[in-house]
Design a protein around this nucleic acid. Structure first.
Lengths: 234, 234
DNA sequence: GAGAAAGTGTGACTTTAATCACACTTTTAG
DNA sequence: CTAAAAGTGTGATTAAAGTCACACTTTCTC
C-alpha cells in the first residue's frame, strides 16, 4: 500500500494523549467514579442543547459529532476514533452542548463524571496544560474544516475526506492490510457536506478512475497518492 | 432601533474578558514587555504557516482572520473587534499559525512577547483557567460556523452575517445611533463564503425589501427582526 | 427465514450560485 | 490635483450540485 505524505494532523484532534502518563494521583481521581458501558450502533451519547454531566472516553468504536439544523439535516464535522475524549468543551465552558455525539458502530466508552474531571483539572497542572494545548490545536483543525467547506469542490472534499478517514479507520498491527472505510453513504455525505446522490456519483467516478474499490458499502483506497492530488490542498 | 433576541454568543469568541480583573502581579508580567503600535488598514499581523512570537491585543480597530487557498481565494472565518486577543492558539499548541490576521481598518494593537505570555499562563491559574474556558467556547463558535456554511443558503448566511457584524460594529455610548457596517463588499463576500457578485445582488434584494439601507459601501440594518427570520436559525 | 425497514444506485430535471465581461465609481498615491 | 488602482454594480452565461422519483439491495427484527 502506498504511504503518502499528508498533513493528517491538520484534520485530527489530539485528545488521545491527554491521559497518557499522567501521575498516579491524577488518574486515581479520574478513575474513581469512572463507568464503562457498551453502546450499540447509532446510540446518542449527548445531544446539542442539553447540559453536560461528564466526559466520555472512547475505548473502542467510532463516534460522529454533528449538528442538526431545523430541517433535520445533519452536518457531521468530526469522526472520533478509539482513544479520543469527548464532551469536555461544554463542561469547561459551562455551556450547553453545541453538538450531538452518536456512535456509528458498536463502541465501548467510559464516562467520567463532571465533578471528578473538573476537580482533576484544578488539581493537575499537567492535565490543564494538556487541555490547553489540545484545544489550541482543535481550533486550527476546525478552521481548516471551515476553509475546506468554503473553498473546495465536492470532489475535492471527497478526496480529502477519504484520506482523513482512511487514517482514522486503519488498524494497529495490520499496517499491510488494506484499510476499509466502513460507514454509510449517508454519514459520508453528511461529513463531506453534500447530497447522498452526489456522493454516490462521485464514488462511481473514483471507481472508474481506479482510485478506489468498493466492497458493499466499504471503500478501499487504491491510489492514495492520486487521491491526495485530487484533494488539491497545496 | 429594533432590539432583537439573537444568540450572538454562538458566533462570537469571548477573549475580551481574559485580562479583566487579573491580579496585579499577573498583569505586571504581561505588561512588562508589551508594546503598542498603530496599524494602517490592510496590514498583516501574522501569516499562516509562520511561527508565533507573541500575542496581540486589539485596543482599537477591526481585524479579520482568514485562510488563503492555493488559488489565492480568501475564506474569512472571524472578525475581531476591540478588546479581543489574537494569536494565542498557535503559541500554546506550539504549532505554526493556521490562519492569517490582517487589519481591515486602522487599528491600535499591543503585542505581548511569547515568553511573557507563556510564563503568565504557567504562573497564573486564573489566566490558564480563563483560557480553557475561552477556547472551549470558541470550539462551539467554530462548529456553528461550520454548520452554517454547510447547511445554509447564501441568502441565509448573508442575513446571519449582517446581524453578527452589526453587533460587532455597534459603538459603546451610541446605542441609539444606527449601526453602520463599514467593510468592503469583497471582505463581506469572503466572510459569507460567496462570490462578490452574488453578494451585490443579494444586498440589492435586501434593499428592495426594505431590510437594509446603504450609504456608499456602508450598510445599515433597518429591520433586524425580519433579517433574523431570513437567517432561519431556529 | 420472511417481511419490513433502511440503505444504495441511477436517471431526469431544477436551482443556486459561480464565472466572465465590462462599465462605472470611489479611493489612493505621487 | 490627477492618473492609476481598487472597488462596485449589472447582465449574460455556465457549471456545479441539489432535488425528486423510483428500482434494487442489504440489513434488521421478530
Amino acid at each position: 500500500m502506498q504511504s503518502i505524505d499528508f498533513p493528517f494532523d491538520k484534520f485530527n484532534f489530539n485528545s488521545d494523549s491527554i491521559f497518557e502518563g499522567l501521575p498516579e494521583s491524577d488518574l486515581e481521581l479520574l478513575n474513581k467514579n469512572r463507568v464503562t458501558h457498551t453502546y450499540k450502533k447509532s446510540e446518542i451519547l449527548f445531544r446539542e442543547g442539553s447540559y453536560p454531566t461528564g466526559i466520555y472516553f472512547i475505548k473502542k468504536g467510532k463516534v460522529k459529532k454533528y449538528k442538526t439544523d431545523k430541517e433535520g439535516r445533519e452536518q457531521i464535522f468530526y469522526v472520533c476514533r478509539e482513544g479520543e475524549l469527548l464532551g469536555y468543551h461544554a463542561l469547561i465552558s459551562e455551556e450547553k452542548y453545541t453538538d450531538t455525539a452518536s456512535t456509528i458502530e458498536e463502541a465501548i466508552i467510559s464516562f467520567i463524571p463532571k465533578d471528578d474531571f473538573l476537580l482533576a483539572i484544578q488539581l493537575s497542572s499537567i492535565l490543564s496544560n494538556r487541555l490547553l494545548k489540545v484545544m489550541s490545536h482543535e481550533f486550527g483543525v476546525l478552521v481548516n474544516g471551515l476553509a475546506v467547506l468554503g473553498q473546495k469542490t465536492v470532489r475535492e472534499r471527497l478526496a480529502l475526506s477519504l484520506l482523513v478517514l482512511r487514517d482514522k479507520y486503519k488498524k494497529e498491527n495490520q499496517e499491510n492490510k488494506p484499510v476499509e472505510l466502513d460507514l454509510s453513504r449517508d454519514d459520508l455525505s453528511k461529513y463531506i457536506g453534500t447530497a447522498r446522490e452526489t456522493l454516490t456519483r462521485l464514488l462511481h467516478d473514483f471507481k472508474e478512475e481506479g482510485l478506489i474499490e468498493t466492497n458493499g458499502r466499504k471503500i478501499i483506497l487504491k491510489k492514495p497518492l492520486e487521491i491526495s492530488k485530487i484533494a488539491n490542498l497545496y
